[in-house]
Nucleic acid binder design. Sequence first.
DNA 1: CGAAACACGGTAAACGTTTACAGACACTTT
DNA 2: AAAGTGTCTGTAAACGTTTACCGTGTTTCG
Lengths: 343, 343
Amino acid sequence: MADGPTITTIAERAGVSIASVSRVLNGLPTRQETVRKVMAAADELGYVRNAVARSLKSRRTHQVAFAMADVGNPAYLAMLRQIQPVLKAAGYRLVLHSTDAVVADEIDVLHSLGERYVDGLIMSPLRVTDAHLQMLAAARAPVVIIGTVPEGTPVDNVRADSRTGVRLAVDHLHALGRRRIALVNGPPDTWPGASRGAAYREALEQLGLPYDDDLVQIGDFYRAQGGRAVAELLDRAPDVDALMCANDLIALGALDVLRAAGRRVPDDVAVVGMDDTDLAAASWPSLSSVSLGSAERGKAAAELLLDRLNGDDAAPRVITVPPRLVVRASTAGETYGHEGGRT
Amino acid sequence: MADGPTITTIAERAGVSIASVSRVLNGLPTRQETVRKVMAAADELGYVRNAVARSLKSRRTHQVAFAMADVGNPAYLAMLRQIQPVLKAAGYRLVLHSTDAVVADEIDVLHSLGERYVDGLIMSPLRVTDAHLQMLAAARAPVVIIGTVPEGTPVDNVRADSRTGVRLAVDHLHALGRRRIALVNGPPDTWPGASRGAAYREALEQLGLPYDDDLVQIGDFYRAQGGRAVAELLDRAPDVDALMCANDLIALGALDVLRAAGRRVPDDVAVVGMDDTDLAAASWPSLSSVSLGSAERGKAAAELLLDRLNGDDAAPRVITVPPRLVVRASTAGETYGHEGGRT
DNA sequence: CGAAACACGGTAAACGTTTACAGACACTTT
DNA sequence: AAAGTGTCTGTAAACGTTTACCGTGTTTCG
């Protein structure tokens, strides 16, 4: 692993100046003979351009960061899957940050933009605090937020519409004749938890259904906890005939518990999840789920960021991705396979 | 977004030289008064060190690359989940490459090590070609391969043991009294496909079961294809009583088709998957699956690489991670939840 | 044939750090 | 009082590129 060749090495070998080498390497107009000599020397030496030196001079790293709360969460992975190819096609490398849903870590990432190791950032924060807003206002590179950000924040913003998403699910359940529709939610101090809770209430109201505290159960966004929450719910409101779950993991937990309790799905209790992860198609009965368009949001975010990196300095843009209800066996009683799973 | 402050800006403001600024910033011994002035200036200006310039000088980027075949594949994600925190804790950023299982892309990644934008690389190639070996021998930074690499290749190597994995599964099925055990495999020209095929044959032999061509079906590593393969298999060998599937997706496809064909799982046909992905725990009946230790391999790889980055230059090491059979409902008929799923 | 135009290519500065070296100053020590 | 010791800080070079600028040699044209 001897010290790799640099343009100086090449220049010596080819008998030209480093400027000429650089010009050849960058395809700037140069005499044929010089091009030949430089290329030959570069080939023989196995030269590869030093990206760091290049970045220092050009002030471009050709790297973009994506900061997600949790590498394990399928919703973020869906984003990642879309972001990656878009950036790659545009010649950018992807630096991945996992913030473990810790606000301080997110702030750190924003702060580290000052180190200039990336040209831009896509971030999907759990919730947006004042600290976030301050850092965003002072960000040293273009940032795109996947999530919802207050009006006037100077960054591009790609939103889900969980309100409409919940609406779709509740309407669907109502249309199937269900009247005791429960909500199994995550913590209300997170953005998803809060907005889904509010949307549920609103949806009931629009349908003329009464809001019943007994029908709302709060747990965490995980399977085991979701199951526990549903168990409590069944105790308290045995007449429940539909469950709106705030994500797919909770819904899987619900299926576990319903099965154990001898309730048939969907005949006795219909279940809808949220996020439409791979798990929804894998479970049995397969899980109806509201897709909040994680994939589309990832793609949109990447494209917005690329625009910025190409010098677009128009006013901050907001894109809202519409939700989509994917109906599977857990509400419609269809047999698996009907919806043409993608795997 | 005016040009950020540099140590020169700070030096002027604090009335000292850039050398002093650098020293203070790096905690080298300096007079208290100077420290104070520099710190004050840095704070006021909101200075953040430029990582690129720093890397150029120090020849360290504090970045590590992880190259996986496919961002969508749960096995790689399991690795990623372990790699990320290990690197983060050691102060490294993670650059993610998705090679789309294209050999040329993998070679590209190896080649790009010459650009020195990372200090090291963890790569999990689908199969290792001569081109790989050449590049590995000439790699400009430490590389750890997750997968199997020929004896004598000068890189650290973390292996799965799919031979033993298949063995575990077949033994398990045999112990349950199954005698017509089929293999639903992926393409035999991939490393996983080839080794699983061979291991299956070997396992049968050891158990004194006859090898029967009708019981081996080749498809692809995906759900729909797995289902199709199993459908054909049922036609050809209706007396099959167990399926060893080369990965979890195939196994899910198998469950679909068995259910549609009215065969009970596990009573009529037992099913084992491979990789023990999240999907295995989510499906119903939950899927027995052989874990090849993706998570452990990821962790081990990250730790090996960190050792190298800390200057360890001992001979290349090989770590083999033992497989583990996770028994769930699809073979044992236990109810879900028994194995204490991790979600 | 001399001057202007032009095509190439070399010199050097710059990007923002780190760090070897040496200078400046304040004390000790003899 | 001169020399020695030690602490702190400034100057400058280096990391590997890109690029502005200028000099040289050739071509073109009056």
